[in-house]
């Protein structure tokens, strides 16, 4: 029985196996760890890119969709009504507004307390009425026409656009996105450089074996395929390692950022809830973690192929 099994040559390598001895020439732990570190950094930069875009969108939408209207001398008469009532009526008759709400005196005092102290309402200052307006959609109202209309019913009324803040936030968010994108590109280039260096080390270590198989009729594709198969496996393993390391970090950051993605200061200041662990990451980040090993494998394959084929050009 034993002889029969040996006759079937169970000790033989399958075709396409490690002809060049690359398992020893290409050190798995070091390359895997380096690619893993790159994958970890790539996950963080992609998460930063997505988060800044998300935060910008939420804040832009919130700020860009609201106006503040100040009515000086709100109690003075403007025709049959007070100026405050006239402005409120004009606003309520304006299409494209989702809500019109005059702030109460208590709310005004809350707003002024940081500047005027706890006795703001007792200072007898001529305070304007403040009306918070929410637009049905950002940019959905002709602000110049609205301003003219309010001036006609209550001269001196101020309409403040809050989308100036939104624009500044958008610029900040765009800068963060670009920075995260640049970091991602640098990380990918460093990963490719690491793979190229490892491949060159493998080529040097197996130079004689490569020249021998080249002399036996191996094509560039045959030799490059041996290297890229080994490198691709190591790069995929590194990518998986990086994804696994990044997952708890991203979950923690996502949990901390979750209140700010709700789009309002009230929600942001609320205590975070305890969501299910799968809900801690948005679908985009789950997809990123799944795709990361595939991308690192792709970078490994391409870099190994290019490096080996370039090196082989020195042979006839």
């Amino acid at each position: 029985m034993l002889k029969r099994r040996e006759e079937e040559q169970p000790w033989l390598r399958p075709a396409g196996a490690d002809d060049l001895g690359l398992r020893r020439a290409l050190a798995a732990p070091l390359l895997g760890a380096l690619v893993g570190a790159m994958a970890f950094l790539a996950a963080l930069s992609v998460a930063g890119f997505l988060a800044s875009a998300e935060v910008a969108a939420h804040w832009q939408q919130g700020a860009g969709a609201s106006l503040t209207v100040q009515v000086p001398h709100p109690g003075a008469m403007a025709g049959l009504h007070t100026r405050r009532e006239a402005v409120l009526a004009a606003l309520q008759a304006t299409p494209g507004l989702a809500s019109v709400r005059a702030l109460s005196e208590a709310e005004l005092a809350d707003l002024l307390r940081p500047w005027l102290g706890p006795d703001a309402e007792r200072l007898s200052l001529p305070l304007p009425a403040v009306v918070a307006v929410r637009l049905a959609a950002p940019g959905g109202v002709d602000l110049a026409a609205l301003n003219a209309k309010l001036q006609s019913v209550a001269p001196g009324t101020l309409v403040e656009r809050e989308d100036i803040w939104a624009m500044r936030l958008a610029k900040l968010a765009r800068s963060l996105e670009l920075t995260a994108g640049a970091v991602l590109v640098v990380v990918a280039l460093v990963a490719a450089a690491v793979v190229a260096v490892a491949t060159r080390a493998g080529l040097s270590a197996r130079r004689e074996a490569i020249e021998t198989v080249h002399g036996l009729g191996a094509t560039d594709g045959y030799i490059a395929a041996r290297f890229s198969a080994r490198i691709t496996r190591l790069a995929a393993a590194g990518g998986l390692l990086g994804a696994l390391l990044a997952m708890p970090v991203l979950m923690g950051l996502s949990w901390l950022a979750m209140p700010f993605l709700r789009g309002s200061m009230e929600a942001a200041s609320a205590t975070p809830e305890e969501p299910h662990w799968t809900a801690l990451l948005p679908p985009e980040l789950w997809l990123l973690l799944v795709v990361l090993p595939v991308v690192t494998a792709g970078i490994g394959w391409l870099t190994a192929q290019a490096t080996v084929r370039q090196w082989l050009r020195r042979l006839p």
Partner: peptide, 10 residues
Amino acid sequence: RLLPHLSAFD
């Protein structure tokens, strides 16, 4: 010019 990591068969 034999490959030292391969068996005689390989």
